[in-house]
């Protein structure tokens, strides 16, 4: 069952007296548990699509359905609740709260919901995910005391704190060196496998795209490739929006 569905999505931005058509009639489904890469060069519309899936931007036309909910007509509170319950975010610049330490940053999303888990329950879960991302010894450190890779690990842990069904990552390795980038992607893949969390990340890094088991390639706001890979490295073309072709990732 698709956890994310985009149907004929358009996004137009005003730019002075002209308009920029960032996304033009994109349609695709994302299945639960996918580890999916939205790839494409700069300006291809991948961040815009990621923002619309993350419910932090709205389509000009078309609809975005998240976990069975059409997001277009939700009000601010409803959409905030949806983001909090279903989505986790990993940002290119980590975007941690600078005045909170590692533990507090990870705990922060848990304190935003209507029903806040008990302190002991929170502690147990946070310690688990901190262990998963390998930051046990850094729990009391502030973000400015951590390296870029460590900060992104905190961001991953924070994204997982509310046990979301989808984690969105916008160019998660862009500010990291290649080795650390690989480690972060491996970590995300591991969480995807361990917890079954759907990971959707935008990237233009070919190496990272290779790891994804579902790749949507964009160009000029249109899907030019939408393929799912099997474990035997056979790719499967999926019917999608305009310009969709079956192809092998990386080609």
């Amino acid at each position: 069952m698709a956890i994310v569905t985009l149907s004929d999505v358009h996004k137009v931005y005003p730019l002075g007296k002209t308009e920029v058509h960032a996304v033009q009639g994109v349609s695709f489904d994302i299945e639960e548990g996918d580890f999916i890469s939205i790839a494409g060069p700069s300006g291809s519309g991948k961040s815009t699509i990621l923002n619309m899936i993350g419910c932090i931007d709205t389509p000009t036309e078309g609809s975005v359905t998240i976990d069975g909910t059409v997001t277009n007509d939700l009000n601010d509170n409803e959409i905030t609740t949806l983001r909090h319950k279903v989505l986790g975010f990993i940002f290119q610049s980590f975007n941690l709260v600078p005045v909170l330490n590692v533990y507090e940053n990870i705990e922060f999303p848990l304190l935003l919901g209507k029903s806040i888990p008990a302190k002991a329950e929170r502690k147990e879960w946070i310690e688990y995910i901190v262990g998963e991302v390998g930051l046990d010894r850094w729990m009391n450190h502030k973000p400015n005391e951590l390296s870029g890779g460590q900060r992104q690990r905190v961001a991953i842990a924070r994204a997982l704190a509310t046990k979301p069904r989808i984690v969105l990552a916008d160019e998660p390795t862009a500010n990291l060196d290649s080795k650390t980038g690989e480690q972060i992607i491996e970590l995300m893949k591991q969480v995807n496998t361990d917890l079954g969390t759907t990971f959707i990340f935008s990237t233009h890094d070919h190496t990272i795209v290779e790891i994804a088991d579902h790749v949507i390639r964009l160009q000029d706001g249109k899907v030019i490739k939408n393929e799912r890979r099997s474990s035997s490295d056979e790719s499967e073309a999926i019917g999608a929006g305009s310009g969709t072709t079956a192809d092998r990732a990386g080609e």
Binding site: I56, D76, N77, T80, R83, F89, F91, P109, L112, A159
Partner: peptide, 9 residues
């Protein structure tokens, strides 16, 4: 970021 990860207005 706070708003994105679930903080209400």
């Amino acid at each position: 970021t706070m708003r994105a990860i679930g903080a209400r207005r």
